[in-house]
Design a protein around this nucleic acid. Sequence first.
RNA 1: GGCGGCGUGGCCGAGUGGUUUAGGCAAGGGCCUGCAAAGCCCUGCACAGCGGUUCGAUUCCGCUCGCCGCCUCCA
Length: 448
Amino acid sequence: MLRLFDTALGYVTDLEPSQAGKFSMYVCGPTVSGEPHLGHGRFTVVWDVLRRYLTWRGLDVRFVSNVTDIEDKIIARAQAEGTPPEEVASRYEGIWWQTMSRLGVLAPDESPHATGWVPDMVGLIGRLVESGHAYLAGDGVYFAAESVDDYGLLARQPLDTLRAGARVEASESGSKRSPVDFVLWKLAKPGEPSWPSPWGHGRPGWHTECVVMSLGLLGEDFDLHTGGLDLSFPHHENERAQAKADGKRFARHWAHNGMIVDEGGEKMSKSVGNTLSLLDLLDAYDPRAFRLQVLQAHYRSPMAVGAGTLESAAGAVERLDVFAREYADARSAAPDPNALAKFRGFMDDDLDTPKAVAAGFDLVKQARSTRGDEAEAVAAAVFEIFEKALGLALLSEAKVVPESVLRLAAERDEARSRRDWSAADAIRDQLKAQGWTVEDGPSGTTVR
RNA sequence: GGCGGCGUGGCCGAGUGGUUUAGGCAAGGGCCUGCAAAGCCCUGCACAGCGGUUCGAUUCCGCUCGCCGCCUCCA
């Protein structure tokens, strides 16, 4: 069984599903108020890998990831642009799914939208108000964090130290009774989108949607709740507090991925403004290079991304493609069971993809240094591991070569058959100048 | 201030109390090649600093220095 670091426990533990053979996970998705950045790219790849791996291991995985389509930043952008908030949200959601597809991230089984669940959220808030866990203040309904006895579990800090450390500015609204309280329902200002509620027209606070949608779709006691490390507190803490106050069991396990950092080692974040566009990066490099780089770092470690790291990863992808072309026939062979067992051992140990990938590269080397059935089985394991389990597609098909290039290649073969090396070299230089790599094999000149 | 993490060879990035190496990229040498490319083989005496524990520490403990995260919207 897979072992994973559980944020709530603070150590690596067995990930026993509540129902044998099944696995339910909820990943906190994006707020669609802008283009995805590198951090989004990482968390989606990390949890996509976990999902694929568990599926590959034979579990029936149900993967739910939300889209936050109503939120302050969306409203702010809509107002700045003079367009409706729905328009902003749907535009960036379109870009989101398009980007995910380029990254090789599978679509969730379900992707609930916050705006589709407002009545359920109002229902939850109502129950929380009734039971005394929430209260109405000047500008909205707030959750009384201190009413939950183990508040601070995910933060791994007791409540009083959280309270002591809370920024004063954060509570300057003057509405909260305690600085650790958080808003469940924001009353609408004129011109803001709103839904009806017993407390007046307004919109849900961010921390409420994920509780309602995860419980609504996966039921109580679902297996795993994940997201970026920066969501562990306060977002996930607050979700958990609501579920608990509502008498629900909520997620059995919690897992969080590490942050992307810039060249200076500082976390990329919207507030600092040092985020890098994921779209630009995917335009500039093979998207698989980013995916491989994510795999080569442990999911909990901070990860630096820059031109150098991406070029390095792109080179490695290229190497894998060369292998995939040479060993394309092995795709249909039975993978070497020992190789797969070793791979599983690494993955089961807290999703150690760096080691798993290293093992994959070792297999590439191993396949090339043996012959016959053994080489074929090892090569088949390479495909099995990278493509099926990790979701990194390898290209066995050469890319389409334009007619003019093929003609030059033919001319070069002809020159070589005449042993006219200077003519052959001149053509090679010409092809190189056009960005093609020329290789001479038994069947003549090939380009890629 | 509270809680937590990190510091590894040119770069990214794993890992471990002790025969021999993570892996990728880059670099150097060799094989192959008309020359290349691709591939294969070989090469780097890495573990912030200072002490301590130990037969032995990069790995355990302490201290110092440096960097970072969370406590605030954030993946």
